[in-house]
Simulated scan of single mutants.
Amino acid sequence: MKTLYIVRHAKSSWEYSGIDDIDRPLKKRGINDAHLMSKFLAKNTKRPDVFLSSSANRALHTAVIFCENLGYPLANLQINRQLYSFSDGYLVKTVCALDDGFNSAIVFSHDHGINTFVNKFGNKPIAHVTTCGIIGIKFQEKHWKNIKKGKTFMIEFPKNHK
């Protein structure tokens, strides 16, 4: 059995002009939500075996906060530029390529790819994964490359924890 947590990056700022999208930082609300949700996850689950993040500043900052609150070594955080994609294709490829030695993983990525992924691989329809939302899906398969439709066991959004 494999367990996957998908986290949409926390709320980012649009107030900085002249910076590339990949470099947009988190807003104060995003930082607070990342702490809130990572502390919730730390209290309610076993820490995932591997953490992977998009290379976008907002996703990476979200992942760093989760690493801190879940006690995961920053040196082991895997940064994947392909996760800075807004389609589920790279997300699927990334998850299917995970080492089978990891029984659980947490991936920090972006809006459209996450929404498509969780509806394709989870068994509960989700209209929209909000910023810093966490979706947990369990798969019966023994190998990541063979994942099919799994069971959505966690749908958590910051608004439900405030």
Score class of each variant (00 low, 15 high):
T152A: 07
K28A: 10
G122L: 06
L98W: 12
K149I: 06
K138N: 14
Q78N: 06
R29F: 10
L36Y: 06
E156W: 08
P158Y: 08
L60C: 04
V64N: 05
G71R: 15
L70V: 04
N115D: 15
I19P: 00
Y90S: 06
F51I: 13
S87T: 15
A34C: 06
I134F: 15
S55R: 10
M154F: 09
A75P: 03
N44M: 02
L77W: 14
I155C: 11
S109T: 05
P125W: 10
T116L: 14
I114W: 03
I19E: 06
W144Y: 12
K142H: 06
L74W: 14
M1S: 09
K149E: 11
K39E: 13
W144I: 12
N57V: 12
S13I: 02
N57W: 00
L60D: 04
H35M: 13
V118K: 07
A59F: 07
Y16Q: 14
A75H: 10
A63Y: 05
Y5S: 10
A56L: 09
N160I: 07
K138I: 05
W144E: 07
H143W: 07
Y84R: 04
D21S: 05
V92E: 07
G133Y: 08
K43F: 03
K2S: 12
P25K: 04
A59W: 12
P25Q: 02
S12Q: 04
H161C: 10
F66I: 05
S53E: 11
G136W: 08
D21V: 02
I147N: 00
N115I: 10
G89H: 06
H161L: 15
F157E: 15
V92L: 02
L83A: 12
A105R: 02
N76T: 04
L70W: 03
L60H: 14
S55D: 13
I126R: 05
I134A: 03
C96H: 02
G71T: 15
Q82E: 05
L41K: 08
I65G: 08
K145I: 09
V129G: 04
H110P: 02
W14R: 11
R24G: 00
E68L: 08
A59H: 02
N76W: 09
S109L: 01
M1A: 13
S85T: 10
T131W: 01
I147V: 01
F66S: 10
A10Y: 05
G30K: 01
L98K: 12
T45S: 13
S87F: 07
S38K: 04
T152Y: 03
I114A: 03
I135F: 03
A42E: 13
E15Y: 11
M37Q: 04
E15I: 15
D99F: 11
L91K: 07
K145F: 08
V92D: 01
F153R: 07
M154A: 14
S55K: 09
G113F: 05
D23Y: 00
K124C: 11
I147C: 00
I19C: 10
A127Q: 14
R24Q: 01
F40C: 00
E156M: 15
I137P: 00
V50W: 06
A97Y: 06
I22K: 06
K159N: 12
D111A: 12
K43C: 04
L83M: 13
